[in-house]
Nucleic acid binder design. Structure first.
Length: 360
DNA sequence: AAATCGGGGAA
DNA sequence: TTCCCAGATTT
């Protein structure tokens, strides 16, 4: 993936757009101290601007600076977070406030690496705090920026991959100007949040439209490509029958090849078969009773098998219905559990031996 | 119902 | 290193 050499006009276009259309009067855009920016960034990670505003204002009233936050009780901090979700972040924030006060004289470190040492703050949040509050030349890479860059360069690989993410960090840093750093950070976030939205982007209002590779494909929303979903496993189903007579159980030898090759298993019926009719026909026996056991799902590497087990007691003797090919054989329960059984078959037999009526 | 969001911690 | 999760909102 190549970085297109538009560094000279990328940031200026974004900033010019921001001057006209960016948001500049949000609560955390007044008095942009590292502390105030930090709190806003943590809240905004998970919640939209409109929802955050009242939380932010209440929070700032109660904890106007890092000392107030450090001195607060955790319960009080969490109470201010109530409804925002991701409560671990409130706890991290409280812990970080204490670290700042106890170890750093209440001052944020000057470098991204330093700020990253605080719990709950990673590279993107650290860069946002330092660029916005101190105009440090540090690029962010949040969801908005990832979307803008993925579209601008028509990046065809998933940003969840380390390699792709590293490339995006490189690109983000490449476009980061050395003037108006804080406004540029804000501008990129606004661009992603208001124009370059996940669906229905307003490409014709975008300052980057002319050389946006995503726009050129006519389908910018295909970027960033979505998480490759592991192919849904097909679901198969079958009835497994425990045929019991005089405390012996009938097992069936599986074909040598294929699933469970050569193992002793339970007779299988189609999932829609009538269990009594099928059993009486296949095994020429007389059904004494049928107990339906709890169905469960067994998952293989490539498919799910929904197993509906049932227990059939038959009246006939055990010599019945064993054929010449040795495909079927009667085992005592103890003997059967000594065999190499498929896991779900073992599970069924063990539960029958315990006398469970319900499988877990 | 599925995707999303940035960082932490487990695998 | 990579994978999965927290939780509420949006699509």
């Amino acid at each position: 993936m190549e970085v297109v050499n538009t560094v000279e006009n990328f940031a200026p276009r974004v900033l010019a757009w921001f001057d006209l259309h960016g948001r500049k009067n949000l609560p955390w855009q007044k008095n942009k101290t590292p502390y105030r920016v930090w709190i806003s960034e943590i809240m905004l990670q998970q919640t939209q601007v409109a929802t955050v505003i009242p939380y932010y204002e209440k929070f700032m009233e109660s904890f106007p600076d890092v000392y107030a936050l450090a001195n607060a009780k955790q319960d009080d901090v969490l109470a201010h977070w109530s409804g925002l979700g991701y409560y671990a972040r409130a706890r991290n924030m409280h812990k970080a406030a204490n670290m700042l006060v106890d170890e750093l004289d209440g001052e944020f470190p000057a470098s991204v690496e330093g700020v990253c040492e605080l719990p709950g703050i990673g590279r993107s949040t650290a860069s946002a705090i330092l660029s916005i509050s101190r105009d440090v030349q540090a690029a962010i890479l949040d969801g908005n920026v990832k979307r803008v860059l993925a579209r601008f360069h028509a990046i065809a690989t998933w940003p969840g991959e380390k390699k792709t993410e590293n490339t995006m960090w490189d690109i983000a840093g490449y476009y980061m100007p050395n003037q108006r750093c804080g406004e540029y950070t804000q501008a990129m976030m606004d661009l992603g949040a208001t124009l370059c939205t996940r669906s229905k982007p307003k490409c014709h209002e975008c300052p980057l439209m002319d050389d946006c590779a995503g726009f050129a494909t006519a389908e910018p929303t295909q970027f960033p490509i979505s998480k490759p979903k592991k192919a849904a496993k097909p679901v198969k189903s079958a009835q497994f029958v425990v045929l019991k007579s005089s405390s012996k159980v009938l097992l069936e030898k599986r074909p040598a090849s294929g699933i469970w090759g050569g193992l002793w298993s339970l007779p299988e019926f189609d999932s829609d078969a009538s269990i009594i009719l099928e059993a009486e026909q296949r095994f020429q026996c007389d059904t004494e009773s049928v107990t339906v056991l709890s169905p469960f799902r067994h998952t293989f590497s490539h498919y799910h098998l929904d197993i509906a087990p049932s227990l059939i007691s038959i009246a006939n003797g055990v010599s019945f219905c064993v054929d010449e090919s040795d495909k079927y054989r009667w085992f005592s329960m103890d003997e059967s559990l000594e065999l190499g059984l498929p896991a779900p078959v073992r599970r069924i037999l063990e539960s029958v031996e315990r006398g469970d009526t319900l499988l877990i």
